[in-house]
Every structure is written in C-alpha cells, then in structure tokens.
Amino acid sequence: MKILAALDSSSQSTFVATEVARLAANTWADVTLLGIEPEAVNTDQRPFAKGDRKAEDHPLIKSLRENRNILQNYFGPDNSPYNHSVVTSELVEVENGFWEDLQVCRGSIKQLNTRLRTGNPAKAVLTEARNSQCDLIVLGNSISIFGGVLARSVKKILLEADTSVLMVAESKNPRRIVACLDHDNISQPSLELINQMVTLYDADLEIVGLTTQDTLANNVDSKMGEIIKYYAANKIKALVRFVEENRLATFAAQAAQDNLVAIWMGKKSLLSRIFHPRSVEKLLSGTESSLLILR
C-alpha cells in the first residue's frame, strides 16, 4: 500500500502525521509526506532556492521534519520498516575491471519520502497523488485543520482525486465503519481498504444498501448476502442496513457524527450522483469525524 499524507505548516498537521503513523504501523505502507506551500503572489519570491541554508528555518520544512520524526518514532528504535540503520559493504563494479567497495546504508524495507510542492494546494496534492500512484491520500478534516493552507482545498481533493481519500479527525476513534457502497460496481481496492480500516480501528462494520421505493435491485440482494457471509466467515461483525436513496445524504451526515463513514465514489458509482458537491459540502461542514471516500 502507498499512502500520501498532505500536510501544511499548521500545528494541526501533527495529528494527521500521527494518524498516518498508526495506519503505516499496521500496513507497513510506503509513505510520502507532502508539504504544501501555497502559490507565491510574486513569482520572484520562490520559497526555497537550491542550496539555500535559510530554507532550514522555513516553517513548512520544520513542520515536515517534525512530522517525519513522529512517523519514525512511532515504531520504536528497532522496528521501523523505514529505518536506514543497516550499514553494509557492497562491492560495485564501476567499470570493466574496476571495483569499488562502498559502504551503503540500506535496510529500509519500505519507503518514507518527504516532498514539497508549491502552488495551488489542491492541484499540488492531486498531481503528487497521480505521480506517486498512491492508494490512499490522507489529510485532516476541514474543521480540524481550520486556518491551515489545506483547509479550503479539502472538498476539491475529496471530489477530484483519482484514488481513495481519508479525511481524518483529531483523536477520535470511530466505533463503526459505515460503508455506503454501490454493490454493482464497488472496486476490489475499496473493499480492501474497508477491511484495513476495520482492522486498524478494531471497529464493527456496517454495510449500507440503497433502496429505491423500498426495493433493492435484484442482484444487490445476492451480492450483499455474499458480502455478509464472507465477513461472518472471517469473524468480522458486519451489520447491514438499508437506506432509501433519497435519504442517504441525511443518513451519512448523521452516521458521521460517531463513525467513520466510507462512501464509494468511483467513476461508475451511483453514489457519486447522490453525493453531488453540495451534499459533500454539507457532510464536511457537519462532521467532526473522519470520512473515507473510496475509489
């Protein structure tokens, strides 16, 4: 799994890093911490220049380094998959008949990258997500990171990312993962991400089926039957609930108060029609909890 954590220099970004560390500790994911510096009004004022020692004092760089430490320290000294602590000698053939014995510091099983992008925050996150081919973007929810550079970009990132997005709330463990799925087209990676969240938070799972005028589509019944039997066989408490299509947005806003609501919004998703931008805005403004958009 590859995780992209979108961070800014606000102090709140440390809780996003902590949440990423939790997720990374379970999944041993490759992690990229992406710092965002908003677009400079004057293009001459580049925030960082090559070899600029003052860049060290830049709040974003300080914050990113702090966040990287949070992640590395989360594992303890000997258990981090990101540690480059193993120094080995490697004999490298530089050219034909010419060898060099190099001391190299390898040993990290997984990658931990720290990157910076300037410019429009939402665009920067979406570009990095595409380039890094990440499986999950993690960012703080707009209430928790209020005032930070990313706060105003949360909605755009949620709606426009090609990949799944986890918007995390500060220090709140969800009791339940409420998964609003469109059972016809739900992607395998989305189901896998739900399973990881259930494991991470040791939470119950509630699968929400959509009904239209009290009726489920024919094949939805059998698909949901398969899903719940799968979870029962895997000893995961999976509950089922039906919600009328026209009440889903209201249901999700209510469920999001105590739970992690996961909404499947892939390209073929029926839910992306129900959760039009205004509904998402309502959901974002009303929730202090985490939200997972699945793709």
Binding site: M1, K2, N26, T27, W28, N79, P81, E192, L193
Partner: peptide, 20 residues
C-alpha cells in the same frame, strides 16, 4: 503491526498490505 513483524521474523521477503 504484529502480523508484519511475525511475517518478517519468520523469513518473509516482504509484507504488503492490500490494496496495492
């Protein structure tokens, strides 16, 4: 975390969480 540690201690070359 325990599963990742156990996997690698017992000799797995790598441990990958889904989705990937």
């Amino acid at each position: 975390l325990e599963l990742a540690r156990e996997s690698l201690t017992k000799g797995a070359f790598d441990f990958i969480a889904k989705p990937f």
